[in-house]
Design a protein around this nucleic acid. Structure first.
Lengths: 248, 248
DNA sequence: CATGCGTCAACTGCATGCAATCAGAATGCC
DNA sequence: GGCATTCTGATTGCATGCAGTTGACGCATG
């Protein structure tokens, strides 16, 4: 499992997985530079391989690739974050719709065990809590055995971690755990409508906790802060700027 | 937009785009081999670049990459096809939900112009009709200006083309055109619920036209054809074989 | 002190080369 | 003739090398 699983688990995949974990545990913060040389050296591979891995991660939206520039960990905008959660909600509603009442005892047990692990990580660092919470959702997706759904939910869940890293403040995961438990109960009981609503509200709650204000909580990038003031239209930047309608 | 945008649109991107088009126009059928050498030579690039492009396409689900084996155009299974359409329906409902009543006259005009193009292509080859129909949906997605939504809808639309190529028979696009017109009308009128339902039924209809029978219409892969017969459960392969636990 | 400019190191974009692995044909055996 | 085996060309996995571009530092200037 470490370096060589069966015969060759592909160096590119190894680097991708490592970077994904580093990103969702916030060891790599948004905006962090990822030079090909450094990655290659760190993982005992050539620049070619590191480059390929960065390409994959870029396709997943986790890193930004600018031509002739050093790749960086993606920094989602607030609007992208909002859209991402909207999509995630629909995808995960699909997951629980497929799963409600279809899980066997073993699967339910696995889910409950995972929530136990989340419970056990409450004292620990935020990074672990976030990772476990994310993995809970991916675990659910995997139970659908639908490759596409698994891929999309995994991808978007990782992106949401990135969003949390970008916007969220110290994070309280208590509510998430109880919400996960409620989800499992409803899944087991097979109440489709209820579990879809639970998932919807759960994710909405996660999003709300992260995305309270449309303005960036911290002055990460001065350009973004000034963006509204650079608009040709002389609209005073007051109140809740209705994000989509006009402002892009 | 053409081959060279400003100065350097990245050779990898060029190859990706070319292959995508070839795939959605069914010039490259599912299962077609894509050797790195050949691609590189054909596009005047090195194998490294072709390889990278294949990696990107694999991340999008358009090609399958098996270790030490020649890459091939992906061949979705019937169940994957069904799941893909389910996801697509939700994504595109999101698109029209955001767009209803928000489009300006110019955008409406662009949409109608596109449908005109579809109309004009009715006599032509299926490949063009399919491509145009797909581009209509991508055009809609682009009007949301949500990068994530655009990416996902584009990706999944391409995959659906692949599905059509795999399962569909001669294809009749007449209904699709009128359905597109109805969508535009509802979008312009801003009736959110109606346009979401229209999109839902439109895509459901497309899926139904393509996925009439769960068994593969043509014996592309003998293993898949025999798969139902290899099941341990002695269920006669009649009627609608509920592929998943309860199928969706 | 702030600003504009030139030089340079660092980094990316891409091609090529070499070893490892695989698919298929030719061969040998029963 | 049917089947297993070996051998070889074809193809991938990966590293390295070279050219072009970018960003940053340092220096000169107002």
């Amino acid at each position: 499992m470490a370096p060589t699983r069966n015969s060759k688990p592909d160096k590119v995949a190894i680097i991708c997985q490592a970077l994904r974990r580093a990103i969702i545990e916030q060891a790599l913060k948004p905006g962090t530079k990822l030079p090909e040389d450094a990655l290659g050296e760190r993982f005992g591979a050539s620049r070619t391989i590191a480059r390929h891995a960065l390409g994959q991660l870029a396709a997943e939206g986790l890193v930004e690739l600018r031509r002739n520039r050093i790749a960086v960990v993606a920094t989602p905008s607030w609007q992208e974050a909002r859209d991402t959660f909207d999509i995630r909600i629909e995808l995960e509603r699909l997951v629980v719709r497929q799963l409600a009442g279809q899980l066997d005892a073993g699967q339910i047990a696995r889910l409950r065990a995972h929530v136990e692990a989340e419970e056990g990580a409450r004292g620990g660092p935020d990074a672990v809590s976030i990772r476990l919470a994310t993995e809970f959702h991916i675990l659910l997706a995997e139970m659908t055995e639908s490759p596409i759904l698994i891929r999309y939910v995994s991808e978007i869940s990782y992106r949401c971690c990135l969003i949390l890293a970008t916007f969220s403040r110290p994070h309280s995961s208590d509510c998430a755990i109880s919400e996960h438990r409620a989800l499992i109960d409803a899944l087991e009981a097979g109440r489709v409508e209820e579990v879809m609503n639970l998932m919807h509200h759960h994710l909405e709650a996660v999003a709300d906790r992260a995305l309270v204000a449309p303005a960036k909580p911290r002055g990460r990038d001065i350009m973004d802060i000034l963006a509204p003031y650079a608009e040709p239209a002389p609209v005073p930047p007051a109140g809740q700027p209705r994000v989509r309608a006009i402002m892009r």
